[in-house]
Amino acid sequence: MRIGLTSIFVDDQEKALRFYTDVLGFLPKNDVPLGEHRWLTVVSPEAPDGVEIVLEPAGHPAVGPFREALVADGIPFNAFTVDDVHAEADRLRALGVRFTQEPLTMGPVTTAVLDDTCGNLIQLMQVSAG
């Protein structure tokens, strides 16, 4: 058994695809029309055959209150690993990305939290060697 997919609920799939590719830098992988929505996935260019993120429509009524409560408390439900959180935050801020937590180093871990403009907070994470 392997982990192949993980999902992120998004308000608008087209807007999400643009943010996750144009801004974050992921690559489109699957884009299959499925009724009024799409089966839409992206992958990291550093691991094009790795785990895919499904940009999942957030239409279910339970999703709204769930995400609102998480976002209000600043809780990122998904995290991406980067080599340098500070550099990545600088790059993304220059593209207009809003951070709810600026880079913070806690022992060997540095994190920052950004708004993906599709209803979610995302954590960037860097683990220093040694």
Partner: peptide
């Protein structure tokens, strides 16, 4: 240390620091 924190950041700081 830094004003203007979310509950998430405060919890992370409390546990790690």
């Amino acid at each position: 240390d830094r004003s203007g924190q979310t509950l998430f950041e405060l919890c992370a700081r409390l546990v790690t620091r």
